[in-house]
Amino acid sequence: MKVTIDDIEIDVEPGTTILNAARKIGGDVVPPAMCYYSKLPGTGGKCRTCLVEVAAGSTADPRPMPKLVASCSTTVMDGMIVKNKTSQRVHDNRGGVVEFLLANHPLDCPICDQAGECHLQDLGYEHGSEKTRYEEVRRTFDPIDIGNKIKLHMNRCILCYRCVFVANQLTEKRVHGVMNRGEHAEISTYIENAIDNDFSGNMIDVCPVGALTDRTFRFKSRVWFLKPMEAECSCDKCCGKAVLWVFGNEVARITARKDTYGEVEDIDGKTGWLCNDCRFDKKDLTKWTVTGPRVINRHSVISQGKYATSIDKPIKRIG
């Protein structure tokens, strides 16, 4: 199937979504996605940041689609023409969505552990306006305790539902979900239960904002002061392949390996989810074999001070 996105034609399998077709092209053609997560079936369609304009539905029916469509949940048709960055309408409406997402966001980036690797920061930088038009009192939620490993900061949540899908798909039973409706909808556990199972830590990795952060890393450091290293260990629960964020000889935190889109990478054909033991309890360099530095996108604030400016090419992985 041939589909044209921003004047670039590409051949994709039937059933591919517009977003994944755009990811095949890569670069700035790719619409941003806050809720879609390719490794978690069923996600997507909620945040509306990936809206694109379909200028022609297909070769058979070349009429344009009247509304902007969510590229993460719309499958391509043969001969479809999609406009993303070339469409003013998309630009305006995406700006609108970002404004809505930021309306009630506390914007407490200076004290947020996610700062530097936050997708909402990137999105706001690209599509947000300089000043907010929101003059009302920002919404707040009562803090709830979901256990000693994960910190839930509901005020920052954009309700992407990814963590709910993680709990549904990776763990044996889900004890948290979305409570209440509309503006008051919140991620919560039933009667303030602690979330306690072997793979719950992955909720932190999938959270695009600072709503779910690592409690063992809370306020320890800023991510851009840390050195990301690829490391392995033998683990019978998970793949045992992670990124260690090192400060001197101390392991500050451990995350899964993420790709360009902030999603957990596939390792040996399987998604590289980490178990809680590897993530929280092995903060010791002697328990890992460091295989090399982790390549971080040079535009990211995390790469600050990591690489010499003269190197244009990404650092080759060792081994």
Binding site: K46, F100, R181, E183, A185
Partner: peptide
Amino acid sequence: YAHESCGQCSPCREGTGWMEKI
């Protein structure tokens, strides 16, 4: 509408609440 929005997608969740306040 602000009360009845399900809160799933951002324009409706945030937009209805915002409009109500204004």
